[in-house]
């Protein structure tokens, strides 16, 4: 009886340690260079092979449940600025980018819990239709992220001090864009004092 008790106890300890380690492994996928690739300050997945890759499926489930196949939509995530520092809600940043050849694209700001953040303008994102472009060809745009006052036409206000992240969604991307995710010009994210 005593032996059975100890056997079950050590099995339970092993299972608990395994779950803790698995949780760490899921969290570390974002830093795993074989699964997560980089294009400047943005991260993306080389292939969304969720049917075969348990670890990638668990990670995507945590940060973006019910993502679409990459033939339909591609996603880029930024949680750091161009100097490699984490993005914080109490800092100010300027994003400068160009439009994408796709059916639809958008840039959305999320809190550390991966949900939309409350803000004074109820503004959570910009897309290719509602963004204000800098030129008549509708190619270049500038977005202000954070800061007490609005200095740019495109303004994503933030509140609090938490770490934040940006998600760039590109739906039905052109073939050139789809096959050049490592080279496509993505918005720069520069920390500024506003």
């Amino acid at each position: 009886m005593k032996n059975l008790f100890y056997s079950l106890l050590f099995l339970f300890i092993g299972i608990s340690l395994g779950i803790v380690w698995a949780n760490r492994s899921i969290q570390a996928v974002g830093q795993n260079k074989s699964l997560t690739l980089k294009n400047a300050e943005w991260s993306y997945f080389a292939a969304m092979d969720l049917a075969k890759n348990d670890l990638q499926r668990a990670f995507i489930g945590r940060i973006g449940l019910f993502a679409l196949k990459d033939s339909e939509a591609i996603y880029f995530i930024a949680n750091q600025d161009q100097d490699g520092n984490p993005l914080y809600a109490n800092n100010s940043y300027i994003l400068e980018g160009i439009s994408f050849d796709a059916a639809y694209w958008s840039i959305t700001l999320y809190g550390e819990d991966h949900f939309l953040m409350p803000n004074k303008e109820d503004r959570y994102s910009y897309n290719q239709v509602n963004i204000n472009y800098n030129d008549s060809l509708k190619q270049h745009y500038t977005i202000q992220l954070g800061g007490q006052e609005k200095h740019q036409k495109n303004y994503l206000p933030t509140e609090g001090e938490q770490q934040v992240n940006l998600l760039l969604r590109i739906y039905k991307p052109s073939k050139a864009l789809y096959s050049n995710r490592d080279k496509v010009k993505l918005p720069t994210i520069k920390r500024v004092d506003l």
Partner: peptide, 10 residues
């Protein structure tokens, strides 16, 4: 147990 917990959880 570790193997079961790790693989099972993921």
């Amino acid at each position: 147990g570790f193997f079961m917990g790790y693989k099972g959880f993921i």
